[in-house]
Nucleic acid binder design. Sequence first.
DNA 1: TGTCATGTATCGTATATACTACACATCTGG
DNA 2: CCAGATGTGTAGTATATACGATACATGACA
Lengths: 117, 117
Amino acid sequence: MTHFGDHLRQRREALRKTDRRYSLRQVAQRVGIEPAYLSKIERGDLRPPSEATTLRLASELGEDPDVLLAMAGKVSSDLQAIIRKRPKMFADLLRQLKQAPNHAILSVVREVRDGDW
Amino acid sequence: MTHFGDHLRQRREALRKTDRRYSLRQVAQRVGIEPAYLSKIERGDLRPPSEATTLRLASELGEDPDVLLAMAGKVSSDLQAIIRKRPKMFADLLRQLKQAPNHAILSVVREVRDGDW
DNA sequence: TGTCATGTATCGTATATACTACACATCTGG
DNA sequence: CCAGATGTGTAGTATATACGATACATGACA
């Protein structure tokens, strides 16, 4: 499992090969953090940043927000809000689905999307 | 919507009517926190405690852990871990189910429980 | 070859979280 | 009526979170 920082750096340097605007400094500036801070995060010297900053990084680097948040050890606060509104319901559901294979979950998602409840 | 602290106090005093062991001080002691701390929490003077302490409170007062955590503005860390392992999957699922009525979610839960994937 | 950009090292800070310790007034049961 | 239990006010602390500011060495490129 590649670390959050490693992942960021790999992604950034990949983008950089075709676009010089993806230097650490320039990315940091667009994201609104200090270059030194981003440097330490990419090298795993500091822990992943806050949810807000992680989301701006995801946007900047074209990554899926939920996936990058997961790599940062977090769960999006809007997902948490959904769970908190019906805790028993969603706690049961998630624990049921914990072991389920991806295709089973996907079929549930589709079923719900198309379902006429 | 009744506040976390109000809820705790109501629950504790309800139990107390039939069992003198549910004084604030004794509950605090069994839970492993200072009485003054529990007092301020029950009155909403301080924010809800940590996940660990909230879980001990739930156990002590016979409450559902996930529900009490939700009242404390939190989501159980084991649920978060489940989501973090397959972020896209579960993020999609939860956002799909956000608006779904309870009975629809319940049927999904049952379906998964009985399902032969 | 000098200048500008790059990544990084060092140091420091503001804010939030999650409590403890102690003292005190009130109340209650025997 | 009084000793012990009860709830609470005040003050303080330890730790984590989430960064900023500055300076510096290296490297590219014009």
